[in-house]
């Protein structure tokens, strides 16, 4: 266990000094300040931040983790030839990326409201959604990098995953709901929703704030269908599924992979 903490600590030192991680945190800080300064009310600020986070956090997390995993391949080989087991190397590498990105996101997103004295506990819901998205999309990025040897193909796969889950899946659900609007669609819609963590995060934020009009194509449809009990179940089960399944698959692939 000591080796795990050592690798995590040195991985974090590398992340903290990364200009990309710094730029990511700075972006959220600047976005927060601008939205609070020029927005009309706090609800609108929350809605705008939620939309930015639902789009940007998955993109940055999946692309950064894919690129970082490929770029540090030779270093990881050097660590793997030390007396360290593969699970220790995998989990410490992933967690250093996750903690680095999450730290930048939390500090950046909280920085604006704290600085301008506009802090409100409702922002924690946005932080929870952003952290869940960072966790899952960093895993998905590593899954591509562990599975595909060709860096360009892996990156294209990561980009395609984000594009599908952030944009296409939403349109697909909307199309299905519109086509079958004469049928009872609550359960199928919830099942389709649970297939996409971005929609789960959107549902979570929707249930926290009354932001229907500002929450994407499926927002109004979701609010009509998601009774509090059903919505909470989808959020909890969907999030667990999206965190556990990729973690198990990536870890297994990493254990059995030839480097």
């Amino acid at each position: 266990m000591k080796k795990f903490w050592v690798l995590l600590a040195y991985g974090l030192r590398d992340q903290v000094r990364s200009r990309w991680v710094l730029a990511y945190g700075l972006f959220y800080f600047v976005a927060g300040v601008l939205l609070l300064q020029f927005g009309t009310d706090y609800r609108r600020y929350l809605a705008s931040m939620a939309n930015v986070i639902l789009l940007l956090s998955p993109a940055v997390s999946i692309l950064y983790s894919t690129v970082h995993w490929y770029a540090n391949g030779s270093f990881r080989h050097l660590i793997l030839v030390q007396p360290v087991s593969r699970p220790v190397v995998f989990f410490s590498s992933w967690l250093s990326i996750l903690v680095g990105l999450s730290g930048a996101f939390v500090i950046g997103a909280l920085g604006g409201p704290v600085l301008l004295g506009s802090f409100d506990a409702r922002i924690f819901s946005i932080l929870i959604a952003g952290l869940a998205l960072t966790t899952v999309f960093s895993l998905l990025g590593i899954l591509w990098a562990v599975t595909i040897r060709d860096r360009m193909k892996g990156l294209a796969g990561a980009l395609g995953t984000w594009l599908y889950l952030a944009i296409l899946h939403d349109g697909l659900i909307l199309g299905i709901l519109m086509m079958l609007r004469d049928f009872p669609m609550e359960r199928p819609a919830m099942a389709l929703l649970a297939l996409n963590l971005i929609d789960i995060a959107r549902l979570f934020l929707l249930l926290q704030f009354d932001l229907t009009a500002l929450m994407g194509y499926t927002g109004s449809v979701l609010q009509r269908m998601a009774r509090p009990g059903v919505g909470a179940a989808v959020i909890v089960l969907g999030s667990l599924f999206w965190i556990l399944i990729p973690a198990i698959i990536v870890n297994r692939r990493f254990q059995n992979r030839d480097f």
Partner: peptide, 20 residues
């Protein structure tokens, strides 16, 4: 992995994190 305590390896391309 215990045998790696006694192992030294030099690869063709040495790579460590740029910021360390």
């Amino acid at each position: 992995v215990e045998y790696r305590e006694k192992l030294g390896y030099l690869p063709q391309i040495v790579d460590f994190p740029e910021n360390l």
